[in-house]
Design a protein around this nucleic acid. Structure first.
Lengths: 142, 142
DNA sequence: CGTACATCCTCTAGTGACTAGAGGATCAAG
DNA sequence: CTTGATCCTCTAGTCACTAGAGGATGTACG
């Protein structure tokens, strides 16, 4: 089967400009074109696009996906490298969860302590102004 | 006390270009300058910068901080609005934690099922290619 | 007093992963 | 034959900075 870019977008739930963007950054190969210069995608490209979308949904970065795609293209190679990309990603997600949970604690506390009165009595503004009122360390959640 | 931009940066742990950036987007007022055109900050600006840094560390967006700062400047107003900004942010953080935990589950499963052999037998690549192998729904963690 | 070197200034451009829109060509349906 | 959907390329915008050029000023040391 062959698909126009719009049909490919519909099948993969990736937007048309995003598909063109993936081509531009070399994540997708240059597809053949019709006589009137329109892109034509086959089943292999649909598969790649689904792979990309799913990996993005799982939070992988484009550069990780680039590597994972090139591994997928070499079925005889060891999967050690794929394993390590996923492991690193998992580690990063753990870090983010921990950091968000610390934030959640601080913010809940701020809300609990807010007396719902005037700004001048408000612990929220006070707490934002002064980190030493915090119970935990926190750095920007990435 | 008065501080050069570098001294203000050292005291607040915000980088010099970032302070200039905050000025450019109107988050910080235009500071007075020396005869040789250098910015001079007083204690009030140091306080604002600390407020900004802490709020950023807690994950607030610049536009939220802009509102929070203007509230902090009106001590007689109700803190209802501040409360609601923080509440919304907390809600968003909860959403993110839930989404990251779903991802974590999927990725852990992928790693467990990887036989550490060849790509062609690897469940990781297979799982990435096909969302229907997933146990949970997931959308991009934002 | 001269000379390093740090710090300051403004300005432009880059990051990641898209998204939005202009301006124009081509296609399919009625 | 016209209408409207889809396609093309290109540029610019998003967020919150970061990096670097090119030049002026300040400070410490010999």
């Amino acid at each position: 089967m062959e698909y126009t870019i719009g049909a490919a977008a519909a099948r993969t739930r990736i937007k048309v400009p995003t598909i063109r963007y993936y081509e531009e950054i070399g994540l997708l190969p240059l597809p053949p074109r019709t006589e009137s210069n329109r892109r034509l995608y086959g089943d292999a490209e649909i598969g790649k696009l689904n792979f990309i979308r799913h990996s993005r949904e799982l939070g992988f970065q484009i550069e990780d996906i680039r590597e994972l795609l090139s591994m997928a293209a070499e079925p005889q190679a060891s999967c050690h490298q794929a394993d390590s990309i996923v492991r690193n990603h998992l580690f990063e997600i753990d870090r983010r969860i921990a950091s968000l949970q610390a934030l959640k604690g601080e913010l809940s506390r701020m809300i609990d302590e807010c007396g719902h009165g005037r700004i001048c009595d408000c612990r929220i503004i006070e707490a934002l102004a002064d980190h030493s009122l915090c119970h935990s360390e926190h750095s920007k959640p990435s």
